[in-house]
Design a protein around this nucleic acid. Structure first.
Length: 550
RNA sequence: UGUCCGAUGGUGUAACGGUAGCACAGAAGAUUUUGGUUCUUUUAGUCAGGGUUCGAAUCCUUGUCGGACAACCA
C-alpha cells in the first residue's frame, strides 16, 4: 500500500534537483557548534537532514562549526555525538570547520588579491557606527581602500600574531549602502589569542561564521545546506562568497525552527535555567534537551515520529507539547511493561481471607504485546489501594470503591467494601472488605460484573521506591510571548517527589533500560540517581485521563 | 522609517488554477479485568479589500498582522 505523503518544500526542491539532473545524489550536513547541549530544536534539524539522505540517494556529514575557540569544548563534542546516535542516526563523515582553517586562510588571501577584502584597524564601536542602521546606509571605513599588497602584508601579520585581540579585522568589501545589513562589509576574520579545543595555539585568527560555514559546505560539496530562518539574511553573503571565491555552489535553504508550548528552546535561556539553579542540570528531566528528555524516558522512536508529524515549513510555529506526549504514549503503550504501584495508600483488610496466607496471582506484562509474557505477584489479606480509589460518598458515575460497592482488584479478586474504619480525627485508616472467592481472575465463576478495576499491592510484600513526577516547566503556553523575564513564568510545581511509594515486588529487578507503565499512573523509567538501596523512577508522561477532566 | 520572510480549524501541516484533506487537541458513543488501548461518529479553517479567470487558499495588487536583520556569536 503506497500511501503517498505530500512533500515538504525542501523535499520538493530536492526532487526537482534530482529530476532535472542538477544532482545525481545529495549531501546534507548537521552543523552544531560544540558549545552546549542539543535540544529538541536540534532533533528537528537532525531528523530533517539525516531523514532526507535516507529518503534520497546521498549522505549526511556531522560537521562541528568550531570557529569560536572561547566558547567551545571537547566535552560538548562527545555529548553531541552521543545524542545523535541515541536518536538513531549515523553520519558519513565527522568533520570540523577547524580542519579547514588553512584552506579558509587561503580563501581569504584570494579575496584580498581580488580586491574584495581589506584589513580594518577600526574599533568594534567604530565598525558598528560605520554599519549604519536598517533604514540608513553605512559609511566607508577609512581603511577600506588599502592596497592589495598592504592588505596581504597586514593579514599575514595578523596570522603571525603581531597584533592583539581586537586591533584589526579582515572585512569583505561588499557594499556599505546595501539594504541587507549583512552585506555592509562584514567582518570575516578576527584576532583571538585563545586556545582552540582542536587546533590548540596554532592560530590566533579565526574566521567568522559567514566565512566558514558556506566555505565548509563548498569544501564538502554539500548540495543542500539547510538551516533555520534567522539565517535568511546571511544567504546573500553566502552566495556572494561562493561566487567570488569560485568554489562549489552549495545552496542554502531555511526552515522555521521548532518552538514548543510551556518550554524554552534557546541555548541562552536553557543555560540560565542551569546556571541559576532552576533545574538540576542540562539533563534535568524537565529540560527540552535531548539528555533531559532521554532521562525523562522519552524514546528516540517517539521523537523521530514527532519530528515527522510537525512537518517542515517557513512560517513561525508553536507546537503543542501535547503532540510530543501523544507520540511518547503511543510508542510506550506498545513496549512498556505493566506494573502495579500505589502512590498514596489506604489499607484494605480482606476480612474473609485467611490470615497469614499468600497466594500468587498471574498478570500480563503487556496486553499490547503477547510476547511480553506474564509475571506473578503476591496477594494476601492486607492490600494497599490508592486513597483516591475510594470515596465514602461517591458521585453517580464513580465506579471505584465505595461503601457497599464492588470492584475488581486487577488480576485478582472482586472485593466489596463492608466497613470504613476511621481514627479519632475522622481520617480513614482502613477499609474492611470481603472478597468473592469464585471471582479469581482467569477462573471467575461468580458471574459478577463490576465497572471498576483497581491496581493494588500486597501490604507486606510491597517494596518502597521513590517516584519523581514532572509537570510543565513553565506556567504559560507561549513563554517567549509572555511579559517580563521568562523565568518569572516558571512553574513552581514542575517537580513533585514522592520519596516512598509502594511497588509490587518484581520492580526491585528494574534496570535503567526498562520501560514501565505503572497501571493507571503513567509511564516510568528508572533514574540514574538510583542506588542499591533506593530505586528512583521518573514519570515520563501520564496516561491519557478522560475521567479526571470531568 | 528600510530590506527580507511569512499568514489555511484551537495547534501543526497538505491541497502546485478545478470537491479545502490529515494529525493532535475537543465532543459523543461502542469495546475493555488499566476511566489506558482499540473502534465508530463528530465540532471547527483559507487575514482583509480590489483585480485576472468559466473557476482563486493558490496568480496580480493594496492593506493589515506576525517574525527576522544594525555581535570581532553561531
Amino acid at each position: 500500500m503506497s500511501e503517498e505523503k505530500s512533500l515538504n518544500f525542501i523535499e520538493e526542491i530536492i526532487e526537482n534537483d534530482l529530476n532535472s539532473g542538477k544532482h545525481d545524489f545529495i549531501i546534507t550536513r548537521f552543523p552544531p557548534e560544540p558549545n552546549g547541549y542539543l535540544h529538541m530544536g536540534h532533533a528537528k534539524s537532525i531528523c530533517l537532514n539525516f531523514g532526507l539522505t535516507q529518503k534520497y540517494k546521498g549522505y549526511t556529514n556531522l560537521r562541528f562549526d568550531d570557529t569560536n575557540p572561547v566558547t567551545e569544548e571537547t566535552e560538548y563534542v562527545e555529548s553531541i555525538k552521543n545524542d545523535i546516535r541515541w536518536l538513531g542516526f549515523d553520519w558519513k563523515n565527522e568533520l570540523y570547520a577547524s580542519d579547514y582553517f588553512e584552506e579558509l586562510y587561503h580563501f581569504a588571501i584570494k579575496l584580498i588579491q581580488k580586491g574584495l577584502a581589506y584589513v580594518d584597524d577600526s574599533t568594534s564601536e567604530e565598525i558598528a557606527r560605520q554599519k549604519g542602521t536598517p533604514t540608513q546606509p553605512g559609511t566607508d571605513s577609512p581603511y577600506r581602500n588599502r592596497s592589495v599588497e598592504e592588505n596581504l602584508a597586514l593579514f599575514q601579520d595578523m596570522r603571525a600574531g603581531k597584533y592583539k585581540d581586537g586591533e584589526k579585522v579582515l572585512r569583505a568589501k561588499v557594499d556599505m549602502a546595501h539594504t541587507n545589513m549583512h552585506m555592509r562589509d562584514p567582518i570575516i576574520y578576527r584576532i583571538k589569542h585563545a586556545h582552540h579545543h582542536r587546533t590548540g595555539d596554532a592560530w590566533c585568527i579565526y574566521p567568522m561564521y559567514d566565512f566558514a560555514h558556506g566555505q565548509s559546505d563548498a569544501i564538502e560539496q554539500v548540495t543542500h545546506s539547510i538551516c533555520t530562518l534567522e539565517f535568511v539574511p546571511h544567504r546573500a553573503l553566502y552566495d556572494w562568497l561562493i561566487e567570488k571565491l569560485e568554489i562549489y555552489p552549495s545552496r542554502q535553504y531555511e526552515f522555521a525552527r521548532l518552538n514548543m508550548t510551556y518550554t524554552v528552546m534557546s541555548k541562552r535561556k536553557l543555560l540560565q535555567l542551569v546556571n541559576e539553579g532552576f533545574v538540576s542540570g542540562w539533563d534535568d528531566p524537565r529540560m527540552p534537551t535531548l539528555s533531559g528528555v532521554r532521562r525523562r524516558g522519552y524514546t528516540p522512536e517517539s521523537i523521530r515520529d514527532f519530528c515527522d508529524r510537525i512537518g517542515v515549513a517557513k512560517r513561525d510555529n508553536l507546537i503543542d507539547v501535547g503532540l510530543l506526549e501523544f507520540c511518547v504514549r503511543e510508542h510506550l503503550n506498545k513496549v512498556a511493561q505493566r506494573r502495579m504501584v500505589v502512590f498514596d495508600p489506604v489499607k484494605v483488610i480482606i476480612t474473609n481471607y485467611p490470615e497469614g496466607a499468600t497466594e500468587m496471582v498471574e498478570t500480563e506484562n503487556n496486553p499490547e504485546d503477547e510476547g511480553a509474557g506474564k509475571r506473578t505477584m503476591p496477594f494476601s489479606r492486607e492490600i494497599l489501594i490508592e486513597q483516591e480509589d475510594f470515596m465514602e460518598n461517591p458521585p453517580k458515575k464513580y465506579f471505584r470503591l465505595a461503601p457497599g460497592q464492588m470492584v475488581r482488584l486487577k488480576s485478582a479478586y472482586i472485593i466489596k467494601c463492608d466497613e470504613v474504619v476511621k481514627d479519632a480525627s475522622g481520617k480513614i485508616t482502613e477499609l474492611r472488605c470481603s472478597y468473592i472467592p469464585e471471582s479469581r481472575s482467569g477462573s471467575d465463576t461468580s458471574g459478577i460484573n463490576v465497572k471498576g478495576t483497581l491496581h493494588w499491592v500486597s501490604a507486606s510484600h510491597a517494596v518502597p521506591v521513590e517516584v519523581r513526577l514532572y509537570d510543565r516547566l513553565f506556567k504559560v503556553e507561549d513563554v517567549s510571548d509572555a511579559e517580563g523575564d521568562f523565568k518569572e513564568h516558571l512553574n513552581p510545581d514542575s517537580l513533585q517527589v514522592l520519596p516512598a511509594v509502594y511497588a509490587e515486588p518484581s520492580l526491585a529487578q528494574a534496570t535503567l533500560t526498562d520501560r514501565f507503565q505503572f497501571l493507571r499512573k503513567g509511564y516510568f523509567i528508572l533514574d540514574p540517581d538510583t542506588t542499591a538501596d533506593k530505586l528512583v523512577f521518573n514519570r515520563t508522561v501520564t496516561l491519557r485521563d478522560t475521567w479526571a477532566k470531568q
